[in-house]
Design a protein around this nucleic acid. Structure first.
Lengths: 207, 207
DNA sequence: ATATTTTTATATTGACCGCTATGAAAAGCA
DNA sequence: TGCTTTTCATAGCGGTCAATATAAAAATAT
């Protein structure tokens, strides 16, 4: 019996916090931080501004929570691949494969929420840009750490510039994100990924 | 003698159109379309709104003119490299080299104005996004055309997927742009470019 | 029943958005 | 010296921005 969950004191909230956060994620993903207004958010959630503010505090904090949620759902494939795949090479292959799938999904492709979110914006929103930048750098650092492990395990040569290699594959993912939003076909995106794998250390280049 | 230039009838304009356009280019480059307000623009130009509107029509048209100017100045190196370099390979090398230099320039790196300009934004500004997308696609098409020529000239194998190869190097440039804005050092950016060249058809991959 | 607590909706807040109506200022033309 | 033409600065247009003051509504607690 779950009767241990006592109802709190006041009026029960009509807003499903989890559902509302998913709605915010979708809007921010498609239109970015500056391109999504509080009015857009409340209309899509079916609530009024005060409900949104008591639940999430501010637009900026709501955006950060949406980014967290993205990292634990649509964007989780990167960390999962790095942790689960037996080799760094296989991890990168899976990351590129899944990036193509996620970024080109739906009638209006959305790319990567981190890469396409808020690269440029007004000076007063600099904290948002800095936060996004930090998240992108953290992703690259994660890839690099996996490459360092591959060096220790003998998969990659000791002289490998793991920082540069991680930055390279991150650049590919960022390029995939932009071109997906530009409407590039899945075949083109897959071809970009395949070409990027030709740069893998020691790999034989194709024709 | 250049006396053939008759002064027009009315009050002479205090606004130097060329100088004002360069100012707009810089602001739009740093802060994007939505992140730059008319007030920002007029303040930086040292004029009042009516002067800006008589000279450029609207914010959207000013942005387009700024993009045109970018393509003929800071961004011209792509078309120049494609036209001037004797081989496609040398053209790509030069594009990557100059992209690193231009994107990481200055105290606050600006990346590529086309790649970082307005990937996501409010639905009402969809025409701006579409215009930028069109310019990015045109750049890729230009690279692809150069690659097709390289196939005809025997530099690249007839079976080369020139569309995919062009999209790949465009993705690298887009990734360079984002990471430059994120503060990546010049060495990292150069290493990304060097890694990308390892994917060149027939090239021997490094360690 | 009454009090307490929390969330809700209504209605605004001041600031800023892109843009423009109005009329004065500055030039050439007669 | 007018008269015409064009650009200029002042001031403000309606609209939207993110965020809130206020108070009614809806639950538990006493």
């Amino acid at each position: 019996m779950k009767s241990t969950e006592r109802r709190p004191r006041g009026r029960p909230r009509a807003l499903d916090r989890d559902e509302a956060l998913e709605t915010a994620l979708q809007l921010f993903w498609r239109h970015g931080y500056e391109g999504t207004s509080i009015a857009d958010l409340t209309a899509a959630m079916g609530v009024t501004p005060p409900s949104l503010y008591t639940a999430f505090g501010s637009k900026e904090r709501l955006y950060q929570e949406a980014l967290d949620r993205y990292g634990m759902s649509y964007g989780s494939f990167v960390a999962l691949a790095l942790a689960e795949e037996p080799t760094a090479r296989q991890a990168i292959e899976r990351i590129l494969r899944e990036a193509v799938a996620v970024y080109s999904e739906g009638p209006a492709p959305r790319g990567c929420m981190l890469a396409s979110g808020a690269v440029t914006c007004a000076p007063e929103h600099a904290p948002v840009v800095a936060d996004l930048s930090r998240r992108r750098l953290a992703t690259i650092a994660g890839i690099r750490t996996r490459f360092d492990r591959a060096v220790v395990e003998g998969e990659l040569a000791p002289a490998t510039d793991t920082e540069a290699l991680a930055a390279f594959y991150a650049a590919i993912v960022q390029g995939l994100s932009i071109q997906a939003r530009d409407g590039a076909g899945r075949e083109v995106l897959e071809a970009i990924a395949a070409t990027a794998l030709r740069a893998w250390p020691g790999a034989a280049a194709g024709r």
